[in-house]
Design a protein around this nucleic acid. Structure first.
Lengths: 212, 212
DNA sequence: CAATTTTTTGACCGATTGGACAAACGTTAG
DNA sequence: CTAACGTTTGTCCAATCGGTCAAAAAATTG
């Protein structure tokens, strides 16, 4: 029996392993060149196998990308999911910013893959944006609104607050080459994430300090 | 004599006009699909001419992109160039944020073209980033440092302040589809730029209010 | 061992791509 | 008019692309 892409059943040990190798290679290639800029040959070479061999595990180039994007969104939303109102609002926000910045530092390829997809108009994940993502944001917006009502943080627009956190943190992954070019050799080393963390904490925590 | 791409001399009126039409079409196509994702045929069609005709004005696909990127950087740096210390620091910063946000609103294609290039590792404009861009930022960092020394704004990292302004404003162009998907039909209309402007002003101006 | 199934590969295919080129067309100057 | 120059197009080409296929090689099973 040939492998059925639709049925998760019947995956042998080799299939599971090779599919992981391919996905890892595809993440590397897709995040660096975008979907249309990447070729199956490139991915196959990065995965250490021939093109027909790769196509034995994923029938179409788009299947690889789709699998990658589905996994990605879960990883990507995880930090926001952790945001809840059991702790102190300022502490919660600081933790969220830190987690997002750590993701930009530790998973820049994932961030760039996501950025690539959105830049092209999100043709393959639009439903997920309007569904899962929007629902999660709506939920967290209510949490933030609660903080504002109770005077724990300044009143402002919760949606744009979330956008600002996304934008500033992901910037260090997506625009990494620009950040390093501007900072130069001295300031552009690994310490840039520490500097960024300090700055962003100050910006957001001072910027959201409740007036009273 | 055939047209020399290297010599700006000898451009007829028709050449100037057609080159502009091509660049406008290329901006549309490149910003939506990236460099490798765009074809000469697409650009030619958007420009209302045949592919060989287009190649009469630009010998290679890359020449179009290069011309576009060179112009782009000038446009892109203009708002930052205007930042100087003749006015009140807070007013200057507010103006800068507003100008950048207006650019994201009025020139989203340019923003996405730039983002695409940086995402791919800036293969074609790296020298400009390390040269012009870095020099300009270094200069403005000194301006901001002066404001901090004189106690007009809070002491913080000027480089990351600039990054944060870039990231938050360009986010509304580069991640537009995500912003609109998350905001939904009600809040995602044209008013979103007004909301963003209000939020960003509050965030940055409160976040940078000097502690006295 | 042999039979069967899974994995791998070389060769191939049609479509698309960036680009070349010569011929045709248009325009202008003498 | 004609010669020269600028512009446009149809046709063509080599390279690359995503993907197929049959057959070989490995692995698994009995």
């Amino acid at each position: 029996m040939t492998m059925e892409g639709s049925t998760p059943r019947g995956r042998t040990r080799i299939q599971k392993e090779k599919r992981e190798v391919i996905l890892e290679a595809a993440l590397e290639v897709f995040s660096a060149n975008g979907f249309r800029g990447s070729t199956i040959d490139q991915i196959a070479e990065a995965a250490g196998m021939s093109k027909p061999n790769l196509l034995y595990y994923f029938r179409r180039k788009e299947d690889i990308h789709e699998t990658l994007m589905h996994r990605l969104l879960d990883t990507w939303l995880a930090p926001l999911k952790e945001l809840d109102n059991i702790g102190d609002p300022m502490t919660e926000l600081r933790s969220y910013i830190r987690r997002k910045l750590e993701m930009a530092r530790d998973y820049p390829r994932e961030s760039r893959l996501f950025a690539n997809e959105i830049l092209q108009g999100a043709p393959r994940i639009m439903p997920m944006l309007e569904g899962e993502l929007k629902d999660l944001v709506d939920e967290k917006v209510e949490v933030i609104k609660g903080w504002m009502r109770s005077g724990k943080i300044a009143r402002t627009d919760p949606w744009h607050l979330i956008f600002a956190i996304w934008a500033t943190t992901q910037h260090y992954a997506d625009f990494d080459v620009q950040v390093r070019a501007v900072l130069g050799p001295d300031r552009g080393g690994e310490g840039r994430f520490e500097d960024a963390a300090r700055f962003l904490e100050q910006l957001f925590l001072e910027g959201l300090r409740p007036k009273s």
